[in-house]
Design a protein around this nucleic acid. Structure first.
Lengths: 245, 245
DNA sequence: ATCGGCACTTGACGCGGATCAAATTTTGCG
DNA sequence: CGCAAAATTTGATCCGCGTCAAGTGCCGAT
């Protein structure tokens, strides 16, 4: 019953082609015409794997490649002057890493694996060459960036407007929806990040996150057992979390 | 002494060419090779003007063009289901509007002028054609989006980590720096937005913003007279606001 | 010049969440 | 399996900020 020890999207061992990849419907090539998808695929370095805790990219490092997570999950964060972590968000399979790097050619935050993780890599050199001749890919990369921007803004709004329970509810609802889009269960999942990570992401303390979860549990909206979550009343969470138009 | 009634970057009436534009060093063409800059310039529709309160783009509207503010300032916001405004930020001369539109081809938030405002316009059709053959412009647009993303994330972090006074201090320091980059005074300026707008941007109430400003005034860090601000001790503001690496 | 309205300031009070502290569960390891 | 360390929960207390409520000053209109 528990998904203990399971990693997000760990389906197949290592894919060799985008065509056979479980992420096909949501990954970069999804919206590309077949011809462009093939050209992109030829540029992709596939199947790299890392262990939990390993850092995929570091702040300040030159942006040598565009990374897309294939399985597992990761934490995006930066370290403040005082040495505390600011958690910007969490990366799920099919999502790109380090897009802010386009700003200066260097990454501006760290990304480290929360579970065993595999990813694909498109070297920037090759990407630029491809952008030269693939109009679909151009549009797709712009779409990706626009989406990331929109999401970041939406999240900022959430932080600005919601109280603690609203933020936690929104966090869960958002995670649930993203998992669903990947064909995973939106109601039964395991959090790969700690309460402290969630708290730093939401601008709360870990105690407050824990209390919010306990409240939801008491209300009968969730079942919570350590990091395993069962969503019993998604509508309730959505109602609390989703104040956006 | 007071800048009353003055609009941000209102220098010349209406420019006819990027070459003569006061924003040349910070606007889109700044980093383009001369040849590409000329090509871009040919596609730009220039000198449109609107009055305060006029909406430049609406949420849901197709993204027909990329807009860059030339003079004046604007407010980016979206309206929540309950009818309240979420203020995402403020646009200064040389900054682009509606980049999140790349996500879906439609704008996702509203932008309205806070003062008399003029702007340039690059129709998306032409932009896409230009992207086809101008590698510098491609890089520049990606840079713009990356920057916007990075900024949005940094801001989110600020919201998550700072208390009320820290947020207001950061807001002022950020504004000050952006004005300076435009060749305007970083210490003497007029806020074009209301306390309520600032509050909604920072996730505070207008009373709290007001109190923060009063505190800074009492501490001798600022002079505040209605919307006119004089920064007396920039370091103090920066120390409060700038927790980022 | 006076009035009315609006943006802003200031004050009083209560609550939500931070902080400090301790109990309890979970996990990793020998 | 059993222990130690880490993660999480729960409890008690305190304070910052939201809320409600008066002012105060500025501007346009008459």
């Amino acid at each position: 019953m528990s998904s203990r020890g399971q990693q997000i999207g760990s389906a197949a061992p290592v894919c060799v082609s985008c065509r056979d990849c479980a992420l096909k419907p949501i990954c970069l090539p999804a919206h590309l015409p077949g011809e462009e998808a093939r050209a992109l695929e030829a540029a992709v370095e596939r199947g790299r794997q890392v262990l939990p805790g390993v850092t995929l990219v570091r702040a300040g490092e030159p942006m040598a490649a565009l990374l897309v997570v294939r399985s597992g999950s990761a934490k995006r964060y930066s370290v403040t002057l005082e040495g505390t972590e600011q958690v910007h968000g969490f990366v799920l399979p099919g999502e790109a890493v380090g897009l802010e790097g386009f700003a200066s050619g260097r990454y501006t935050c760290e990304v480290s694996a929360l579970e065993p993780l595999s990813y694909c890599r498109v070297p920037m050199r090759k990407l630029e060459q491809l952008l030269e001749r693939l109009p679909g890919l151009r549009r797709e990369i712009l779409r990706l960036l626009g989406q990331a921007l929109d999401e970041a803004q939406r999240l900022r709004g959430e932080l600005a407007q919601s109280d603690a329970r609203g933020r936690v509810a929104h966090f869960l609802a958002d995670l649930s929806e993203r998992l669903a889009r990947r064909g995973l269960s939106p109601t039964e999942f395991r959090l790969s990040m700690s309460r402290a990570d969630i708290a730093r992401h939401l601008g709360l303390t870990l105690e407050t996150v824990s209390r919010a979860l306990s409240t939801f549990k008491r209300e009968g909206w969730l079942r919570v057992r350590a990091r395993d979550i069962s969503v019993l009343r998604p509508e309730a969470l959505a109602a609390l979390g989703g104040g956006c138009a």
